[in-house]
């Protein structure tokens, strides 16, 4: 199945520069966010903020076809 991955801040360097953090990933049916993180080789040494279709989710959450998955390193401001 295909999901839309959106990586932000420092995580953007995982994809090609011209992608600006956005890519379509073809991943096995029934995969979780955790599997996606593994697949993209996102470093595990920092806590991640995950959003699926704009809603906060845990790394155990299962993905479905067409999901929009946002992954952020710790960010803040105000």
């Amino acid at each position: 199945m295909e999901v839309e991955v959106r990586l932000f801040a420092t995580l953007r360097s995982i994809l090609a520069k011209e992608d600006r953090g956005v890519g379509i990933v073809d991943i096995e049916e029934g995969s979780s966010v955790d599997d996606l993180i593994e697949y993209l080789e996102i470093p595990r040494d920092i806590p991640l903020i995950i959003m699926i279709n704009g809603q906060r989710k845990s790394e155990e959450s299962l993905l479905k076809e067409g999901d929009r998955v946002g992954i952020f390193p710790p960010v803040g401001g105000g």
């Binding site: 932000f8 946002g70 952020f72 960010v75 803040g76 105000g78």
Partner: peptide, 19 residues
Amino acid sequence: EGLPQYGTAVLVNILNEAG
């Protein structure tokens, strides 16, 4: 790390993503 690198505007994308 986050604040020195991007400043507060790093929030644009996360607020946009969160709707």
